[in-house]
Amino acid sequence: MKAVVAVTGVILFGFVLLHMLGNLKALTGKDAQGVPHIDTYGRFLRTMGEPLLPHGFALWSVRIVLLVALVLHVGMVMRLETQNRAARPIRYHHRLVLVESTVAARTMLVTGMLLLVFIVIHVLQFTTGTIQVTPIEPEQVYTNLYNAFTVWFIALFYVIAMGLLGLHLYHGVWSLFQTLGIDNPDRNRGLRLTAVMTAVILFLGFCSVPLLFVMGTMPEPPGQTAALATPPEESP
């Protein structure tokens, strides 16, 4: 069961890494035609492998894999947690003094649950556009980002969520090697360092986008005035 948590963790982690690299496209500007790079990238995700695969096939395959991985990850953790609670029916009178575990390790369950809530909100906001705090228009990735992240509380919300992600990965990335039996005394320092680096790099990489937008350092999207003039399409 723990191996399932670890393997699905690797899948989700791989996705998060690609997601960050994709996000950084928002910072690279626009091409000669004035189309932001991230919009081109967004189209690429839909048309990936197009002559061979139908439109959106690759994107939906990845989404299904991720959804299955997420459900398994959460489901197995819930089963393990039930087992753990049953393993000590009578608690200690004097709280157990924890001396070795990190804050990240002790809060895995809390950060995990908050991240799950975040993922739902994030998908509803940017993928389905169900929650329209700021207007979300299909295929206009840069414009959508600009509109959302120049609002300070949205940027703050995302930065906090990424802090939680960093904490979760700081323990998770090392822990999965231990669970899969890949860790040993020679590799331990390297694997610990990997966990710290991934947590820090992902946090900085993800946060750079909302922070740069909210600080007003990013250029306005092309056709910004036109986009604001036409009211956003009401989603049914």
């Binding site: 087992q83 753990n84 049953a86 001396v99 002790r106 669970t179 005394p185």
Partner: peptide
């Protein structure tokens, strides 16, 4: 009916023989 390992390493700290969690891996 023992619980599941979450790699806290508290066991290693409490072990009177200082057995390493590398054996768990």
């Amino acid at each position: 009916g023992f619980g599941a390992c979450r790699n806290y390493a508290e066991c290693e700290a409490a072990c009177p023989k200082k057995i390493s969690i590398s054996f768990i891996s």
